[in-house]
């Protein structure tokens, strides 16, 4: 570990400790898993209301999905190819009395009791828009569709960085339609997303980004994603100014999900899709970092925008 990494880790730990000591986050004994206080939740609630207000023009269909999705649907998203290290597969015990005894014995002996668990039909949702696509199979109206989503999503990446949670909420506006409709949505929301974040006092700026694709092949995928100008992130310093954190992202998926889930435009072509995702916990953390831990003391403008 180089000195920079060490000082980065120290900055993460320090902010994490401050948040836990202030009671905003409740430690659950696993890096990246936290309870949230009423104040923390209040900030997210008010921020979301502001997003809803700014997104009202889109007349989006509101859909809310649980944080688990069908294993079969998951396999069609391409996540297992691109991010196998981040997945969450749900397993349970499905044996009889004998197997149960073996399981308890293994547990007693401190052995690995999880080896004989069986996979359920469910996977943890890795991105808020994934549960939408399987429900959208078929032909879209000519105006396409815009959907407002919010979901807890799971990513297995334990970290001391409080902004890198394993379970967190994404608020998304997803567009399904033609390439033009999808790109307009992505570009429009990149601008609007920045305005929204600026309005609450966060100095967010857009950067071209790539997803954390797995492995060496993933480096190629990442380079391709950048080359094709598919992903932007809105970044802001949270634990440290050295390495700003993405608090929202605007993505154009080309026709990936249209192909995968047989979603077609009115003229029968595979639909294109795009989304903006706000990382709600990260936004709350950025707000607490920027304006302090007590929202009653936040700048008047910010309180007005958030109706605090």
């Amino acid at each position: 570990m180089c000195l920079d990494d060490e000082s980065l880790t120290a900055a993460y730990r320090q902010y994490q400790t401050e948040l836990v000591e202030a009671g905003l986050l409740i430690s659950l004994g696993v890096p990246g898993l936290y309870g949230r206080s009423g104040i923390f939740e209040g900030v997210i609630e008010h921020f979301e209301q502001y997003v809803t207000q700014r997104g009202a023009f889109a007349r989006a269909e509101v859909m809310r999905f649980p944080p688990m999705m069908s294993r079969q649907h998951y396999l069609r998203t391409g996540h297992i190819q691109n991010f196998p290290d981040l997945m969450g597969s749900v397993h349970t015990f499905q044996g009889g009395d004998r197997e149960h005894l073996k399981l308890l014995e293994a547990r007693e002996k401190g052995e690995d009791w999880t080896r004989n668990l069986a996979a359920t039909e469910s996977m943890m949702v890795p991105a808020a828009c994934y549960p939408l696509y399987p429900t959208a199979t078929g032909t879209l109206p000519s105006v396409g569709r815009t959907v407002d989503l919010r979901c807890f999503v799971f990513r297995c990446e334990p970290s001391s960085d409080p902004a890198r949670m394993q379970l967190f909420r994404q608020r998304e506006y997803v567009r399904l339609g033609t390439a033009e409709q999808a790109l307009d949505h992505r570009n429009g929301w990149l601008k609007r997303g920045q305005e929204i974040l600026n309005a609450v006092g966060l100095d967010a700026r857009p950067v071209v980004a790539n997803d954390p694709f797995f492995g060496r092949g993933g480096q190629m995928l990442a380079a391709t994603q950048v080359e094709q100008d598919l992903k932007y992130e809105l970044v802001v310093p949270i634990a440290t100014a050295v390495k700003p954190t993405a608090i929202a992202s605007c993505n154009y998926h080309l026709d990936h999900f249209g192909h995968a889930f047989d979603i077609k435009t009115a003229d029968g072509k595979p639909a294109h899709s795009a989304c903006i995702g706000f990382g709600l916990e990260r936004i709350a953390l950025a707000l607490f970092k920027t304006h302090g831990f007590d929202p009653t003391q936040w700048p008047t403008d910010v309180k007005r925008v958030l109706a605090l």
Binding site: G78, Q81, N82, G215, R216, G217, G218, M220, L221, T224
Partner: peptide, 10 residues
């Protein structure tokens, strides 16, 4: 495709 490229590379 991008994914098949990985297979070719390996």
């Amino acid at each position: 495709t991008s994914l098949a490229t990985v297979g070719v590379m390996l």
